Simulated assay, not measured.
Amino acid sequence: MIRLSEQRRTAPSWVRALDGRVKIALLVAYSVCLFFIDGLAGLAAAAVLLAAAGAVGRLALGPVLRAAAPAYVIAAFLLLYNGASLGWTSALVVTGRILLLVYASVVLVSLSTATELTAALQRLLAPLGRVGLPVRDATTALSIALRFMPVTAEELAAVRRAQAARGATFDSGGLVGRLRAYGGLMVPLFVGLFRRADRLACAMDARCFGAAKTPVYLDEARFSAADVVALAVGVGLCALLPFIP
Rank of each mutant, 00 (worst) to 15 (best):
M1H: 04
R3F: 11
R3E: 08
L4F: 04
Q7G: 04
Q7I: 01
Q7F: 02
V15F: 06
R16A: 11
D19I: 04
G20R: 04
L26Y: 09
D38L: 15
A41E: 15
G42T: 12
V48F: 13
A51T: 01
A51N: 02
A52Q: 01
L59D: 05
A60W: 00
P63A: 10
P63G: 08
A69K: 12
A71W: 02
A75R: 01
L78C: 08
L79Y: 14
L80I: 13
G83H: 14
L86W: 02
V94T: 09
R97A: 01
V109Q: 12
L117C: 05
A120M: 14
A126S: 10
L128M: 12
V135K: 06
T139E: 14
A145V: 01
M149A: 14
T152N: 01
T152A: 10
Q163A: 12
Q163Y: 12
A165Q: 11
D171C: 07
D171V: 08
V176H: 07
V176F: 15
G177Q: 13
L189C: 08
F190V: 13
V191K: 13
R196Y: 00
R199A: 01
C208Q: 05
G210I: 03
D219I: 07
D219R: 12
L231F: 10
G236R: 15
C238M: 03
L241F: 02
P242V: 07
